[in-house]
């Protein structure tokens, strides 16, 4: 008598999920390995502070995912004991925790986007060096802004639907913007470019370019501040004043021009910033996609009655969700703490 022995002592579904997970391990290993190698192979890497990365928020996200792993395991245990409502409750909690993870992630992404740090072109004006290409990009953006502001001022003046007071206010606003633009251009961009043209690659020229970069985006690291421009006294123009405003003070966030005038959105210089943005958004983006897929599956599973016949299904879903948690366990120290 021959008995049928399955090749593996587990249901086919579980086998398939494990095979899928081993491919996912390789997928994320590729991405994480890329990050490790690139980050430790580059000469410059931004500090978390300079790219608005908050470690406590990352730790909170880790805690949320750990809790969701526990809750889905408890859901499985409840389903095995045929307690369908309890299983559904735990599953719903997992869904809530997963959604809150995504919500926190969205808040973090917003912190990057609002400072003009995007994954890649055309949105991301992150330059790795303060060189002539950077100053040219700043000059072009200022030119764009000038044209835009003048166009809008002309349109507002012709707009019959606005009252006189409103028109005067808008004109004043427009003029103030144009003043800021010409100040930046005159105080920061032009001296640097002139110096570089007259003495190519001179130290003075490079310092002026660095001053421009520092004024636009001032990623002051309280532990290790490079006070390169401390010898230059603040001038009278509000533009120069902005970059020295909080010099010396251990303030949470130093004001650069992009913060003081949010409509500016000038290109920013962060050493290692371009590579950082690419790898950060790649890793967290793919992870977030996996979380979204998991949440969709939870929603589908929540429509069923989670009794002991569904224990296998919940186990498989749980395996996927634990894997998502493990990936985040590795991502958190690599991205936030290294």
């Amino acid at each position: 008598m021959f008995k049928y022995h399955p090749a593996l002592p587990i249901p086919n579904g579980k086998t398939c999920v494990w095979l899928f997970l081993s491919t996912e391990i390789m997928f994320f290993a590729g991405l994480i390995g890329t990050y490790i190698v690139l980050r430790f192979g580059s000469t410059a890497w931004p500090t978390p502070h300079s790219v608005h990365l908050s470690e406590p928020i990352g730790a909170f996200n880790t805690f949320v995912l750990i809790c969701s792993s526990v809750s889905i395991v408890l859901s499985l245990e409840a389903a095995r004991k045929n307690r369908a409502t309890e299983a559904k409750g735990w599953m719903f909690l997992t869904l809530l925790l997963g959604s809150s993870f995504l919500g926190v992630k969205a808040y973090e992404y917003n912190a990057k986007f609002s400072h003009n740090i995007y994954p890649w072109y055309p949105h991301s004006p992150v330059y790795e060096k303060a060189d002539l290409q950077y100053s040219a990009a700043v000059r072009m953006r200022l030119g764009e802004l000038r044209v835009e502001t003048q166009q809008r001022m002309a349109d507002d003046a012709k707009n019959d639907r606005l009252g006189e007071e409103e028109k005067a206010r808008l004109q004043k606003e427009g003029e103030a913007r144009l003043a800021v633009i010409s100040n930046i251009s005159g105080d920061l961009v032009e001296p640097a470019e002139k110096e570089m043209r007259n003495n190519p690659d001179s130290p003075e020229g490079l310092i002026l370019l660095a001053k421009l970069a520092n004024a636009v985006y001032h990623p002051h690291d309280p532990h290790n501040a490079p006070h390169a421009s401390a010898d230059v006294a603040p001038g009278n123009s509000p533009v120069q004043f902005a970059s020295f405003q909080a010099e010396g003070a251990e303030s949470e966030h130093e004001e650069g021009l992009n913060d003081r005038y949010p409509w500016l959105k000038l290109p920013i210089m962060i050493p290692g910033g371009g590579l950082w943005a690419s790898t950060y958004f790649l890793l967290t983006g793919f992870h977030a996609l996996h979380v979204v897929v998991g949440l969709i599956v939870f929603v589908i599973v929540l429509t069923l009655t989670l009794d002991s016949t569904k224990a296998g299904l919940i186990e498989n879903v749980g395996l996927y969700w634990h894997f998502v948690d493990i990936v985040w366990i590795f991502l958190f120290p690599l991205l936030y703490l290294f």
């Binding site: 494990w18 095979l19 997970l21 081993s22 491919t23 391990i25 390789m26 290993a29 590729g30 994480i32 390995g33 490790i36 190698v37």
Partner: peptide, 14 residues
């Protein structure tokens, strides 16, 4: 069977 090959790939790649 599932975990060792995947881990090998991860470690050796890096």
């Amino acid at each position: 069977v599932f975990t060792v090959p995947a881990s090998c790939m991860s470690i050796f790649l890096v």
